[in-house]
């Protein structure tokens, strides 16, 4: 006997929701999925009417579903948002070029304006070139740091009010676990926020999928037959995050609610008084928010351009030492240059 949908009690159920364990039919699943996102957007006060919102689009399942649902909800509930797609081209042959094609197809289907920014124009380096220098280990550090900044720069160029990213509940739970394992109190505090940005000059990032299970996003994309790109990044197998990810997946198989539970735990904790947290500064070179004098992206770039790609991956003390060295070199050089100028 077929199982009947738990909500409408009429149609045949097609899937068991990982989140609640209820069996739902396709239509009711769409309705539940979309209502939950709407609920998150409303209770989290993610958007205001008339705002311009950039959707960070990679062509993967999360961002494709995000673009789709935001467009649907924007029309259904009259959020009054002006939605844009913003893609970053890291320059990874065989991965990003293909996924950007997906984004372009999505752009036509959803009729949203698309902007593509590449690492090459922003930093003068593609990921392919970086990997040639650094090797397959630690390259995710470059990609992650650069993308975060690239998204912000793109958003500033477009003059948007908010950036919406496709981070789902699994991603956030994984980040919480990672930050506990690494002892990163400052990030542990920040990573559970649904809207980022205490910094007034930065553009706030919102995560409408904060409470949405990865499995449900995949199911939604599958049933809706959305066009998305599903290949793992060719440079990605990142050792430490891999541990946390495997642990989380095992946890989910034992008890599906653990994902939301971890987020709940994270939300209910705050940092004790008297614990030293890094202060937010501005990078002296590019003006981007940073916890040091120079932001991570500038340090990494410096290393790449000076032919020392490992700079910024090891200890901070080495970085300061290296920067002092290069500063004195620069000083002597500029002195020399001036001398030549004067001579001329």
């Amino acid at each position: 006997m077929p199982i009947i949908c738990h909500v409408c009690n009429d149609k045949k159920a097609l899937l068991k929701r990982p989140k609640t364990g209820h069996a739902l039919c396709k239509e009711c699943f769409y309705w539940a999925f979309e209502s939950e996102i709407h609920h998150t957007i409303v209770t989290g006060k993610l958007f205001k009417e008339g705002e311009i919102v950039a959707i960070g689009a990679s062509g993967g399942k999360d961002s494709t579903v995000l673009a789709h649902t935001l467009k649907v909800l924007n029309e259904r509930y009259n959020y009054g948002l002006d939605l844009r797609l913003l893609s970053i081209d890291e320059g990874i042959t065989g991965y990003r070029d293909d996924s950007l094609e997906t984004v372009k197809r999505n752009q036509q289907e959803y009729d949203l304006p698309l902007t593509v920014l590449s690492y090459e124009t922003l930093y003068g380096w593609t990921m392919d070139a970086i990997v040639k220098k650094i090797g397959k280990k630690n390259n995710c550090t470059f990609c992650g740091v650069f993308r975060r900044q690239a998204l912000d720069r793109g958003a500033m160029m477009l003059g948007v009010n908010k950036i919406a990213t496709g981070h789902n509940a699994d991603d956030i739970a994984e980040t919480i676990l990672m930050n506990i394992l690494r002892g990163d109190i400052a990030r542990l505090k920040r990573c559970t926020a649904i809207i980022t940005g205490d910094d007034p000059s930065g553009i706030p990032r919102v995560k409408p999928f904060k409470y949405t299970y990865e499995k449900e996003i995949v199911a939604y994309a599958y049933f809706k037959k959305l066009d998305y790109f599903s290949t793992e990044c060719i440079y990605s197998p990142d050792a430490y995050r891999g541990h946390a990810r495997a642990y989380l997946k095992d946890l989910e198989s034992i008890r599906p609610s653990t994902i939301i539970d971890i987020i709940h735990s994270g939300e209910m904790l705050s940092v004790c008084q008297g614990v030293k947290l890094p202060s937010q500064l501005k990078c002296v070179r590019c003006g981007y928010i940073s916890s040091n004098e120079l932001c991570k992206a500038c340090i990494l770039l410096e290393g790449l351009n000076k032919g020392k790609p490992k700079l910024g991956i090891g200890k901070t003390s080495k970085v300061t030492q290296q920067l002092k060295l290069s500063k004195s070199e620069e000083a002597s050089c500029s002195g020399g240059c001036n001398k030549i100028k004067n001579d001329l």
């Binding site: 738990h6 939950e36 609920h39 209770t43 649904i194 409470y211 939301i260 987020i263």
Partner: peptide
């Protein structure tokens, strides 16, 4: 006033 994991879970339970 806020979006929290618990509130979201209760909402999920309620709509099903």
């Amino acid at each position: 006033a806020q979006a929290t994991a618990l509130r979201h879970t209760l909402f999920s339970e309620a709509i099903n």
